[in-house]
Design a protein around this nucleic acid. Structure first.
Lengths: 198, 198, 198, 198
DNA sequence: TATGAATGAGAATTCATTCAT
DNA sequence: GATGAATGAATTCTCATTCAT
């Protein structure tokens, strides 16, 4: 049907498999996604999956790793130290939502699936932690008022949470990306910058 | 082990089962939680689970329903129309985080598990939708500046997202409840009330 | 719902249960019929079924016994030694098909279900054996030609088989009862009476 | 027990499985036959059954299909247009009873089990319907007397029923095959050909 | 390199059957 | 006499995983 088995170089096979895996994981969720289905979608045999990734867990972890990297690359590419802080924020948020918009499945697999799947939470938490740190940093550097580090981290956590919720809506197409960028920038800038303790 | 099977009236057994189910679902997630494990935790036999709930799906749905009700009751109990809007907000948020703090598992099962489990999302989405609506309403009623309804809903979505993220941290004990209340009140009050478009 | 449990005398309860059981067995077949369903249809509790009949097997056997008796009574009632052999045959066949026609479920449970259900075949085989014997007897008494007993029994077997097949059609309503009586009488009378060996 | 799992090509395994399945279905009946038992008899693991046949239903249907084909082949092989009608009838009946005699289990599974098992009746009814049609045709073509088509079909139904009943006895060894052939030929030829309406 | 063939282990679900009241 | 409550034991079916080629 599909023709002779093609001898593909390792790197390409790997991508092909991860593509298929992400597809299927995003569609059915980690548990309901069967190795059978993934192999079929990748148009290879199951033993190949095991040869390359060893186990379902490892395969899922690899998906997360690849997508996290792609994600971070997208964000990093948007950073430009020569801009004003506010513009940096804007660019960062636009890059974030842009990625989510164009990679709905990544977002689903990487974040939402992984985050609430005990054994994989750590893999995501890392990236997220960094995002929170970074946000806290920006907040502090542009805040007119003095807060403890702990307070800035808390604000950052809330902001990131807002961002994730909005990203969900961008991913499912129920809200417009640019409107979302706008909102989040304002939320980050005006809302938090001025917070002062009671 | 536990002694002979005790004849309990239906109502009590039902609660016992739901307690056990929530425990196990929270611990392992919907898929990885086996009916076996739940029956064992409830110290009853599997057929009882099926006699009372019919299927794993129905059991999970019943968990969500019971906890959602408890949750809404907690929020409703905190409402007091005689207070100032800001105090109402404060009370509401404190009730919300208070519930999450004292019912970590509920939060996990109700929200995080259910929300990203295709077949159950609807059950949660309802409550959440209402929360967003309500928040949007409050925002509009106390906003000094004019925005479209759509914009208020968007802000509300972000705010609720922030609240959920913070709730996660409250649930896992990594941040202090009162500090979180403070932050969210400010975020809701100061941050969004003053938002204006570019 | 159904009102208080009525204390019914044993005999009536038994009929009520058998009626329900035959209904359910006829509808779903022996295996697929659950004691639950039977109890529900009889509007009594499962323990009652067990109190009266001890086991599903016994219950099924009881169904067969009751219906076999009713069946034989119907046939016996049709016998009239003062008639000519041919008229006796006609009456017997008419009684048989009449019973099947008015008791489709009995026919199904008694014959078709039981006959091919290993453990119950014996219960049916008895009645059938007698029918074959009787038929063989009639054949011999009215045959113009000499055959061995074995041959008469064989003919009777075939005849009874034809009768059963026709009865199936009468039961499912796909053929008319009187036409079927006609056919079988002729088959018995003309067809077999004249058979002679090569 | 049997030694290591042998890698057999698909086609062979398929036959092996069907053989085992027919055995077990014939022995216990459709419902009481467990996939476990079938797998054990075939000396393979349960998942193989499901890999090849998908479900118990499908497996049973496959049994019926294979045996029906073998059965029809046997009958078809016996047809010879150059013979006289009566000889054709004789050959056909002999082929039929020959098959039943040598394939008791087939007969059991194909006909008696399937026919009274709601979901599978259709699979058998087809073949049977054709047999009835064919018989009706032969009856008409050789009848000296005029009847309606409906009457011929009715006669054919009875005849086929007789044949099936006799086949049951041939299958269980309680009567002799050649005697049975004789009887049925006569029944078909003499008995029915001459029937006339009242 | 690549895979068709195979399975151990465990999932959800259902049933006939029995106590304790 | 009658039943609500309870279960042990199967049953069908699926899945991640591994050989043998």
């Amino acid at each position: 049907m599909t023709g002779r088995p093609k001898r593909l170089p390792r790197a390409i096979r790997e991508q092909q498999m991860l593509d298929a895996a992400i597809d299927v994981f995003a569609e059915h969720g980690y548990h309901a996604a069967s190795m059978n289905a993934i192999a079929a979608r990748a148009e290879i045999s199951k033993p190949m999956l095991y040869l390359y990734y060893g186990s379902k867990d490892e395969l899922f972890a690899s998906c997360i790793r690849r997508e996290s990297t792609r994600f971070l690359d997208a964000l990093t590419g948007a950073a430009d130290p020569s801009l004003s802080p506010r513009e940096q924020l804007t660019h960062g948020i636009r890059a974030f939502l842009g990625f989510v918009h164009q990679n709905r499945q990544s977002w689903h697999v990487m974040y939402r699936q992984a985050m609430y799947q005990k054994s994989f939470a750590d893999l995501v938490t890392g990236s997220r932690e960094r995002a929170v740190e970074l946000t806290a940093l920006i907040l502090r550097s542009s805040s007119r008022e003095p807060h403890s580090n702990e307070q800035f981290r808390l604000m950052a956590t809330a902001l990131i949470g807002a961002g994730e919720a909005v990203a969900d809506r961008v991913a499912d197409g129920s809200i417009d990306k640019e409107a979302a960028v706008d909102l989040l920038v304002n939320l980050g800038w005006r809302g938090l910058a001025g917070k002062k303790p009671q």
